[in-house]
Amino acid sequence: MMLAESGAPAWSWNLLTDFQEMWSYPFMVNAFRAGAIVAVVAAVVGWFVVLRRQTFAAHTVSAVAFPGAAGALLLGVSAVYGYFTLCVAAALVIAALRGGGDHEESALTGTVQAFLLASGFLFTALYRGLLEGPQTILFGTFLGITSSQVTVLTVVGAVVLAALALLGRPLLFASVDPKVAAGRGVPVRALSVVFLVLLGAATAETSQITGTLLVFALMVIPAATAQVLTPRPALSLALAVLLAFAATWLGLTAAYYSPYPLGFFVTTIAFAGYLLALGWRSLREVLSRRAVATPAAREVTA
């Protein structure tokens, strides 16, 4: 995972030269490009995941990405196809298992998820071609992202974002208030199936950067952080994108200049942001309670 066989690169605090240095390697340029695309797609899809309370479904879909990638390698095709095929298939299975009910079949989904994870482990054991075992699939890597992989990520990401731009408003309505939305003629069931497919595609994308176990770092944490910070839908969506983007690029930079893995940095940065947001919110609550308690203080804060 370490880059630095040829002498570790050193961080100079001169951002311009640092980025010039990183971007002198084509694989780093690809990593930053892929990271940017994935951050945006994951944050937007994740914002709806958090709002719809579908984190378990998202977790399941991301867990299947592992046997998907491992199985693709075993079959001798690019892991990219494995990610997309199994993630979207898993999303469809979850949609089908739900049937007419509103609730996820969580026990059944969990059972299938465990089995698929075990299969993934078997595939990696059979394949033996992975130098580091299943680790890069599970925890992500920024090495070896090819230009064609970036193209695939861009195309799929654009399709997901375009679909969400078209469906966004009714999807929000159906997520927050399904009964009234259905009364208004919003196709609530169909939207939830389509959203699961988009979730599958976005998860497949994110897995390729953060690894399948750390998909939440980009998909759930930035969205949850943004929703802690503001209840305004448009603003929190924009914040989620910004936070995911920042976590990815900072994580890539940190991983380049240090011997530790990318997934760790992205997750840690995103998690730190979440903690800061929680702290900021409780601080604000305390302050506003004080302001209510003492009218003099209210004048100051207002």
Partner: peptide, 19 residues
């Protein structure tokens, strides 16, 4: 984390496609 005004607003045009 959605404001009351947003929920009220959905009643107005929440069923429209596009953002």
């Amino acid at each position: 984390r959605i404001r009351g005004v947003d929920v009220v607003r959905m009643g107005l045009d929440g069923d429209r496609w596009g953002v």
